[in-house]
Amino acid sequence: MMKKIKMIRLELDRSIYSDEAVQKAAYRFIDRFAAIVSRADNSIVVEITFGTESSNQREHVVADFKKELLDQNLRLRIKTETEAVRNLILAYAFSKSGLQE
């Protein structure tokens, strides 16, 4: 008998979620499910395929994934806002090391 594939589809608003945040969140979950990320109009679509998990386990993992999506969005905001100063600090940290040519 063919195993029933357990698939869940999430449609995320592109004005809220960035491609990068969604991909990073999906990567963090590759030990729990397989995901395909694609675009459709104004959405980012995540198709999640589970293995042998029970329905309860699947719900729990998807709930965690939704939280992770928000966290990744926030991480990206912090990264974008602090990128210039991060580069400045690193440049300054190495400026007296004698390592640069």
Binding site: D71, L74, R75, I78, K79, T82, V85
Partner: peptide, 10 residues
């Protein structure tokens, strides 16, 4: 204030 680079984990 200005944010400085940081990361977070739940």
């Amino acid at each position: 204030y200005e944010l400085l680079p940081f990361k977070f984990e739940p």
